[in-house]
Simulated scan of single mutants.
Amino acid sequence: MVYQKVLGQLLEDARHAIEVTDEELDEARRRRRLLAGAMRGAFPGSTIYFNGSVAHGDANTPLTDVDLGAKLSVEDAKGYGPGRRNALPLMERARQAIRSELGEEFPDLTVKIEGQRRAVLVRFGDPVTPGQPDFTADVMTAIPHPSGMGLYIPNMEISDRWDRADPLTHTKLVLKALEDTDRVFARTVRLLKHWNKKHSKPLCSWNIKALALECIKEPMPLIDALEGFFTHADEALKDGPTKDPAHVAGPIPLNMLRGDVRRRLRTARDYLKLAQEHEAEGRPLSAQRALSRVLPEIVPDVDVTDEEQGRIRSLFSMAAAVGPGLAYGATPTRAWAP
Rank of each mutant, 00 (worst) to 15 (best):
A335M: 04
R123M: 06
G150H: 06
V294G: 03
R117G: 00
A119H: 07
E235A: 14
G52L: 01
K201Q: 15
K71E: 11
V66S: 04
P338Y: 05
H194F: 04
I143K: 11
G83T: 15
T129D: 05
G79E: 06
T333F: 11
K112N: 14
I252V: 15
N155D: 15
G131Q: 09
L173A: 14
H278V: 02
L192Y: 04
S317K: 07
A36Q: 12
R293I: 05
C204P: 00
H56Q: 14
F229H: 05
I298P: 02
D13A: 14
R117N: 02
L192T: 02
R334K: 14
Q132L: 12
L102W: 03
G259R: 14
P89R: 10
R15N: 06
R33M: 10
G148E: 08
D126R: 11
R334A: 12
L213V: 08
D301L: 09
N196Q: 13
D234L: 03
R289V: 00
A212Q: 10
D244R: 09
E24S: 10
R190F: 01
S286L: 13
I158M: 14
V66F: 00
R187S: 09
S73P: 03
F185W: 05
Q132M: 15
H170Q: 02
Y328W: 12
D306S: 10
I158E: 09
H199E: 04
C204H: 04
A290C: 05
V174I: 15
A287P: 03
M39G: 00
R31T: 02
T231N: 10
E24Y: 12
A236R: 15
E92R: 11
D138N: 09
T331Y: 09
P167T: 08
L226N: 13
I18M: 03
S73F: 04
L265K: 10
A233P: 04
D138F: 03
R283P: 03
V120M: 01
A290S: 13
A327Q: 08
Q116F: 01
E101C: 02
K209T: 10
D224P: 02
K172C: 06
L226P: 01
P300I: 06
F135D: 00
A165C: 10
E308T: 12
R93I: 08
L237P: 07
R40P: 01
R29E: 15
V299N: 02
L191N: 03
D22M: 00
E12H: 06
V294H: 03
R85D: 07
R334G: 00
I158W: 11
V174Q: 10
R95A: 07
E23A: 13
H16F: 06
E19T: 13
A186F: 12
L211R: 11
A97R: 11
I158F: 04
R118F: 02
R123I: 01
R95N: 07
S147E: 09
G57R: 08
A36M: 07
A335I: 06
P144H: 11
A280I: 06
G240I: 14
E179Q: 13
A335Y: 07
S147I: 11
K198P: 03
P241C: 15
S159W: 05
G69P: 02
V322G: 04
R266H: 08
